[in-house]
Amino acid sequence: MSNGDPVSVSALPRFGVAVSALSVLVVCGLVAPAPAPLALAVVGGLALGAGLGRDAEFALTAGVAGLFAAVLVAGSEGRSVEWMLAAAVPVVLAWVTARHALRLGAQVGRAAGTLRVELVHLVSTTVLLAAGGGVGYLAYRSVAGSPSPLALGLLLLAVVAFTVSLR
Protein backbone atom coordinates (compact mmCIF):
# COMPACT_ATOMS: atom_id res chain seq x y z
CA MET A 1 0.00 0.00 0.00
CA SER A 2 1.31 3.39 -0.81
CA ASN A 3 -0.14 6.85 -0.70
CA GLY A 4 0.24 7.40 -4.39
CA ASP A 5 3.78 8.71 -4.48
CA PRO A 6 6.54 6.21 -5.14
CA VAL A 7 8.66 5.44 -2.12
CA SER A 8 11.96 7.24 -2.33
CA VAL A 9 15.03 5.35 -1.17
CA SER A 10 15.65 7.94 1.49
CA ALA A 11 12.29 7.12 3.11
CA LEU A 12 13.03 3.42 3.53
CA PRO A 13 13.72 2.44 7.13
CA ARG A 14 17.38 1.54 7.53
CA PHE A 15 16.90 -1.48 9.79
CA GLY A 16 14.63 -3.36 7.40
CA VAL A 17 16.92 -2.66 4.46
CA ALA A 18 19.92 -3.79 6.49
CA VAL A 19 18.25 -7.06 7.56
CA SER A 20 17.21 -7.69 3.99
CA ALA A 21 20.73 -7.04 2.68
CA LEU A 22 22.27 -9.20 5.40
CA SER A 23 19.89 -12.06 4.56
CA VAL A 24 20.92 -11.85 0.90
CA LEU A 25 24.57 -12.00 1.92
CA VAL A 26 23.90 -15.03 4.13
CA VAL A 27 22.17 -16.84 1.27
CA CYS A 28 25.08 -16.00 -1.03
CA GLY A 29 27.51 -17.27 1.56
CA LEU A 30 25.56 -20.53 2.06
CA VAL A 31 25.41 -21.40 -1.63
CA ALA A 32 28.85 -19.93 -2.40
CA PRO A 33 30.95 -22.98 -3.21
CA ALA A 34 28.84 -23.87 -6.24
CA PRO A 35 29.11 -21.37 -9.10
CA ALA A 36 25.63 -21.76 -10.62
CA PRO A 37 23.64 -21.24 -7.38
CA LEU A 38 25.95 -18.37 -6.44
CA ALA A 39 25.28 -16.64 -9.76
CA LEU A 40 21.53 -17.13 -9.25
CA ALA A 41 21.75 -15.77 -5.72
CA VAL A 42 23.77 -12.71 -6.78
CA VAL A 43 21.36 -11.88 -9.60
CA GLY A 44 18.43 -12.44 -7.24
CA GLY A 45 20.01 -10.20 -4.61
CA LEU A 46 20.58 -7.44 -7.16
CA ALA A 47 16.98 -7.70 -8.35
CA LEU A 48 15.78 -7.51 -4.76
CA GLY A 49 17.91 -4.40 -4.23
CA ALA A 50 16.49 -2.84 -7.37
CA GLY A 51 12.97 -3.70 -6.22
CA LEU A 52 13.64 -2.01 -2.88
CA GLY A 53 15.27 1.04 -4.44
CA ARG A 54 12.60 1.63 -7.01
CA ASP A 55 9.55 0.36 -5.14
CA ALA A 56 9.12 -2.30 -7.83
CA GLU A 57 7.15 -5.23 -6.49
CA PHE A 58 7.89 -7.42 -9.49
CA ALA A 59 11.67 -6.99 -9.24
CA LEU A 60 11.50 -7.74 -5.53
CA THR A 61 9.47 -10.93 -6.00
CA ALA A 62 11.65 -12.03 -8.90
CA GLY A 63 14.77 -11.39 -6.83
CA VAL A 64 13.50 -13.53 -3.96
CA ALA A 65 12.48 -16.24 -6.43
CA GLY A 66 16.08 -16.15 -7.71
CA LEU A 67 17.44 -16.53 -4.20
CA PHE A 68 15.10 -19.42 -3.51
CA ALA A 69 16.01 -21.08 -6.79
CA ALA A 70 19.67 -20.75 -5.80
CA VAL A 71 18.94 -22.58 -2.52
CA LEU A 72 16.95 -25.29 -4.34
CA VAL A 73 19.67 -25.84 -6.93
CA ALA A 74 22.36 -25.93 -4.23
CA GLY A 75 20.16 -28.26 -2.15
CA SER A 76 19.60 -30.69 -5.01
CA GLU A 77 23.36 -31.18 -5.28
CA GLY A 78 23.57 -33.50 -2.33
CA ARG A 79 22.93 -31.19 0.60
CA SER A 80 21.13 -32.37 3.70
CA VAL A 81 17.50 -31.57 4.46
CA GLU A 82 18.63 -29.59 7.52
CA TRP A 83 20.82 -27.37 5.36
CA MET A 84 17.96 -26.79 2.98
CA LEU A 85 15.63 -25.72 5.78
CA ALA A 86 18.25 -23.43 7.30
CA ALA A 87 19.12 -21.83 3.96
CA ALA A 88 15.47 -21.11 3.16
CA VAL A 89 15.05 -19.06 6.36
CA PRO A 90 17.18 -16.05 5.21
CA VAL A 91 15.40 -16.15 1.83
CA VAL A 92 12.02 -15.78 3.50
CA LEU A 93 13.42 -13.14 5.90
CA ALA A 94 14.87 -11.11 3.02
CA TRP A 95 11.51 -11.08 1.28
CA VAL A 96 9.41 -10.40 4.37
CA THR A 97 11.59 -7.56 5.69
CA ALA A 98 11.96 -5.97 2.26
CA ARG A 99 8.20 -5.83 1.76
CA HIS A 100 7.69 -4.59 5.29
CA ALA A 101 10.32 -1.88 4.76
CA LEU A 102 8.62 -0.77 1.55
CA ARG A 103 5.25 -0.44 3.22
CA LEU A 104 6.72 1.32 6.23
CA GLY A 105 8.60 3.69 3.95
CA ALA A 106 5.43 4.49 2.03
CA GLN A 107 3.20 4.92 5.05
CA VAL A 108 5.47 6.37 7.70
CA GLY A 109 8.88 7.26 6.28
CA ARG A 110 12.24 7.29 7.95
CA ALA A 111 11.70 10.42 10.02
CA ALA A 112 9.58 8.49 12.49
CA GLY A 113 11.27 5.92 14.70
CA THR A 114 10.44 2.60 13.13
CA LEU A 115 13.02 0.42 14.87
CA ARG A 116 10.60 -0.95 17.47
CA VAL A 117 7.97 -2.04 15.02
CA GLU A 118 10.62 -3.51 12.72
CA LEU A 119 12.19 -5.45 15.54
CA VAL A 120 8.80 -6.81 16.59
CA HIS A 121 8.13 -7.79 13.01
CA LEU A 122 11.52 -9.47 12.60
CA VAL A 123 11.28 -11.38 15.87
CA SER A 124 7.70 -12.51 15.30
CA THR A 125 8.48 -13.61 11.75
CA THR A 126 11.55 -15.52 12.90
CA VAL A 127 9.57 -17.23 15.66
CA LEU A 128 6.85 -18.19 13.18
CA LEU A 129 9.40 -19.55 10.73
CA ALA A 130 11.18 -21.48 13.47
CA ALA A 131 7.90 -22.96 14.70
CA GLY A 132 6.69 -23.90 11.23
CA GLY A 133 10.06 -25.25 10.18
CA GLY A 134 10.41 -27.14 13.48
CA VAL A 135 7.06 -28.88 13.16
CA GLY A 136 7.80 -29.73 9.53
CA TYR A 137 11.21 -31.07 10.46
CA LEU A 138 9.85 -33.22 13.30
CA ALA A 139 7.26 -34.68 10.93
CA TYR A 140 10.00 -35.36 8.44
CA ARG A 141 12.23 -37.05 11.01
CA SER A 142 9.40 -39.29 12.10
CA VAL A 143 8.80 -40.54 8.58
CA ALA A 144 12.45 -40.66 7.60
CA GLY A 145 13.67 -44.17 7.00
CA SER A 146 10.34 -45.56 5.84
CA PRO A 147 10.09 -44.14 2.39
CA SER A 148 6.50 -44.85 1.48
CA PRO A 149 5.59 -43.06 -1.75
CA LEU A 150 1.92 -43.08 -0.83
CA ALA A 151 2.72 -41.33 2.47
CA LEU A 152 4.63 -38.66 0.57
CA GLY A 153 1.72 -38.20 -1.83
CA LEU A 154 -0.67 -37.85 1.10
CA LEU A 155 1.67 -35.31 2.67
CA LEU A 156 1.50 -33.27 -0.52
CA LEU A 157 -2.29 -33.53 -0.50
CA ALA A 158 -2.35 -32.31 3.11
CA VAL A 159 -0.12 -29.33 2.29
CA VAL A 160 -2.27 -28.32 -0.68
CA ALA A 161 -5.51 -28.76 1.26
CA PHE A 162 -4.28 -26.64 4.17
CA THR A 163 -2.98 -23.94 1.86
CA VAL A 164 -6.31 -23.78 0.05
CA SER A 165 -8.11 -23.48 3.36
CA LEU A 166 -5.81 -20.66 4.48
CA ARG A 167 -6.29 -18.45 1.46
Binding site: G75, G132, V135, G136, L152, T163
Partner: peptide, 18 residues
Protein backbone atom coordinates in the same frame (compact mmCIF):
# COMPACT_ATOMS: atom_id res chain seq x y z
CA UNK B 1 11.64 -34.16 -8.09
CA UNK B 2 11.76 -36.31 -4.95
CA UNK B 3 13.41 -33.65 -2.79
CA UNK B 4 12.01 -33.87 0.74
CA UNK B 5 13.89 -30.75 1.83
CA UNK B 6 12.09 -28.69 -0.79
CA UNK B 7 8.71 -29.93 0.38
CA UNK B 8 9.68 -29.10 3.94
CA UNK B 9 10.34 -25.44 3.14
CA UNK B 10 6.61 -25.18 2.39
CA UNK B 11 6.14 -25.40 6.16
CA UNK B 12 7.49 -21.84 6.47
CA UNK B 13 4.81 -20.53 4.18
CA UNK B 14 2.05 -22.50 5.88
CA UNK B 15 3.09 -21.14 9.27
CA UNK B 16 3.17 -17.51 7.99
CA UNK B 17 -0.24 -17.78 6.33
CA UNK B 18 -1.67 -19.73 9.29
Amino acid sequence: AGLPGTVLTAAFGVSLAG
